[in-house]
C-alpha cells in the first residue's frame, strides 16, 4: 500500500513515492502549496520554507 501524508494547508492526501527522502519538496496537487517532507516514517509534511535572498547556485 502506498504511504500517504496530509497536506497541511488543504488536507489533501498526498502519495509518497518509494524512495522519498526527508528534505524533499512536494507540491500539493490540490492547492499547489510547496511542502517539505519532514519525516518519512510515518510520512509527514510541513509548508516548505520561502526562498531566501541567498538561495541558489
Amino acid at each position: 500500500m502506498k504511504e500517504q501524508a496530509i497536506c497541511v494547508v488543504c488536507e489533501c492526501a498526498i502519495d509518497f513515492a518509494p524512495g522519498t527522502l526527508k528534505g524533499e519538496i512536494l507540491v500539493c496537487p490540490e492547492c499547489g502549496t510547496e511542502l517539505e517532507v519532514v519525516c518519512t516514517t510515518p510520512p509527514g509534511l510541513a509548508e516548505a520554507p520561502q526562498v531566501e535572498e541567498d538561495w541558489g547556485e
Partner: peptide, 13 residues
C-alpha cells in the same frame, strides 16, 4: 550535506 533536497542532491546520492 543539504538543507533542501533538490533533484541534484538525489542524483548525487
Amino acid at each position: 550535506l543539504y538543507t533542501r533536497l533538490r533533484k541534484e542532491e538525489k542524483l548525487l546520492a
